[in-house]
Simulated scan of single mutants.
Amino acid sequence: MYNNILTSQDNGITKITINRPSKLNALNKETIQELHAAFRVANLDTDTKVIIITGSGEKAFVAGADISEFADFSVSEGGNLATKGQELLFDFVANLSTPVIAAVNGFALGGGLELAMAAHFRIASDNAKMGLPEVSLGVIPGYGGTQRLPQLVGKGRAMEMIMTAGMIDANHALQYGLVNHVTAQDELIPLAEKLAGKIMRNSSVAISAAIKAINSGYEDGVNGYKTEIQQFGNCFGTEDFKEGTTAFLEKRRADFPGK
C-alpha cells in the first residue's frame, strides 16, 4: 500500500513507521503524502485510540527533509513547499483528535524534529540527537519549527538551537522539556505502548476535547480559556461523561463507549 512507510494496528494502537533506512528516513514529497494518508486513516479508525510515529532501524527517526528535491526551487516554490507540507502533515498531525506519541529513535533533524514536535508529545531513545540545522543550508525551518520549538523549550533555547544549527542529545532534550521521557532503544516502543495503555483507559472523547483546548492556547487571536469552557461544556452531552461519572459514584472502573 505504501512505498516509504509501514503501518500496523494492534490493541487500539496504530503504529506508523517511516521506512527509508537507506536515506535515514528522510522526508521526501511522497513520504509526506503517505504519512498524511496513514494518519488520516488511523484518525478515522474507531478501533485506533492512540497513534505512535517512529522511524525504522536504529540510526534515525527522521534525519531531515530530502534536500535533493528542493535545492533548485524558486522563492514561490519554496513558499509553496512549506505551505503544503504544513497543511498536509505538520499542522494536520498537531490537530488530530487521536493522541499522537512520537517515539524518537536516533537522529531527529530538521523536518524530522518538526514532525516529532507536531506530535502531541515525545519520548526518545538514549542515543537520540535532535536539532534544526536549516540555517547551515541558507534556509530556515519551514515546517513549523520556528514556532513549535520556542513553545516547547523557550525562546532563548530555541534561538540558540536554530542559530547554531547544533544538535542536542536526549538528556538535554529531556532537560529542555522537548521530550517527556528517555529510555534505552529496545525499551522505546514498549514505553510508548505503556503510555498509550494509560491514555486508553480514559475517555477518547474527553481527550480529543483536551487536545483542541490545549492547542487553541497557542493560536493567534484565539482565547484558549473560551475554547476550554466550550469543550468542557460539550463533554456534558457525551455518553463518556455519563459513564465516567456513574462509574466514579458506583466505585467501579469506567468502560467508556467513546461517544
Rank of each mutant, 00 (worst) to 15 (best):
I5C: 03
K29W: 06
E30A: 09
Q33G: 06
Q33M: 09
H36D: 01
R40M: 10
V41L: 09
D45S: 06
D45M: 00
D47Q: 15
T48F: 01
K49D: 04
S56H: 13
G57F: 12
A60E: 14
A63M: 07
S68V: 14
F70E: 00
A71Q: 07
V75F: 02
E77V: 01
N80R: 07
A82T: 09
L88K: 09
L89Y: 07
T98S: 03
P99G: 04
P99C: 09
P99Y: 01
A108T: 10
L115S: 10
M117Y: 05
D126N: 14
N127F: 06
A128S: 15
M130R: 04
L132R: 05
I140C: 03
P141D: 01
G144P: 05
P150D: 08
M163I: 06
A170C: 04
Y176M: 08
T183H: 12
A184Y: 03
A184L: 11
A184D: 05
G197T: 02
I207N: 08
S208N: 03
S208P: 00
A210V: 03
A213G: 08
S216R: 10
G217P: 04
G217L: 02
E219Q: 13
N223C: 09
Y225H: 09
Y225V: 12
T227G: 05
I229T: 04
Q230S: 10
E239Y: 11
E243Q: 11
G244Q: 07
T245W: 11
A247F: 00
A247Y: 01
E250L: 12
D255S: 14
G258E: 01
